[in-house]
Write a protein that binds this DNA or RNA. Structure first.
Lengths: 113, 113
DNA sequence: TGCCCTGATAGACATGTGTCAATATAGATA
DNA sequence: TATCTATATTGACACATGTCTATCAGGGCA
């Protein structure tokens, strides 16, 4: 399935209600972040020096099977939070900062709300 | 269940990986936002003039049964995104801006990442 | 070619989740 | 008290999801 089109530059949800369509698109991304393992994967990838992480680094970071990690990576890729690239035998995942930034802006709350 | 303790003022996840515990706490909130109906409810409450919305306003905004809306409101309350107050026969829901702001800060991405 | 190694996919299974109809509860009002 | 309105709770059910084992596919290398 295609990554949802979040298309930044829209008012934060504290300004006006989301349409049903946009809610559905955005909710897909939040849903992907709504699993502890996936959220942690994102944080590992996002904070990693060099900006990318090999799958082999991730499988070692959790007490979960390799297919399970692979499944979570697929989910994160499908919603546009990560992208992957194969180099030789290894696959590297990188953050798509725009996706996270769009979400952040969407739920941002004016200082003294 | 108690609202997860997000305790703001922690580095964004682009700075350092989340611990398993914090991932679990934060993921609960993202999970609550990961449903289109709930996300839309939050946006309606958050953007509503006066800062609060009566349940009766929400049941009219969706083609869903009243118990279903009530269920979603409960989920949003349990993770600390909304609070409710009863006045006479009506129950009013308000946003907890800190919870949303904490999330926003957590996933914020430095400008030219 | 054949063998490893890394990662993805398929299928199974238990648990979680969104929805509804039915019912219960809280408060107002007659 | 009886009754009406507004929400919440319960229980059921179909479907989604996280996990595993087993297997497949891509790419190096002998």
């Amino acid at each position: 399935m295609e990554p949802p089109e979040l298309s930044g530059c829209s008012p934060p949800l504290t300004r006006e209600p989301l349409s049903a369509e946009r809610s559905a698109a955005v909710a897909r991304v939040f849903k992907a972040l709504g699993d502890p393992v996936r959220l942690r994967i994102v944080s590992i990838v996002a904070s990693h020096a060099g900006g990318e992480v090999c799958v082999c680094d991730l499988t070692g970071a959790f007490e979960l099977s390799q297919p399970t990690i692979s499944h979570h990576l697929k989910v994160l890729k499908e919603v546009g939070l990560l992208v992957s690239e194969r180099r030789a035998s290894w696959v590297y995942y990188r953050l798509v900062p725009e996706t996270l930034a769009d979400l952040s802006a969407l739920i941002d709350v004016p200082a003294s709300a």
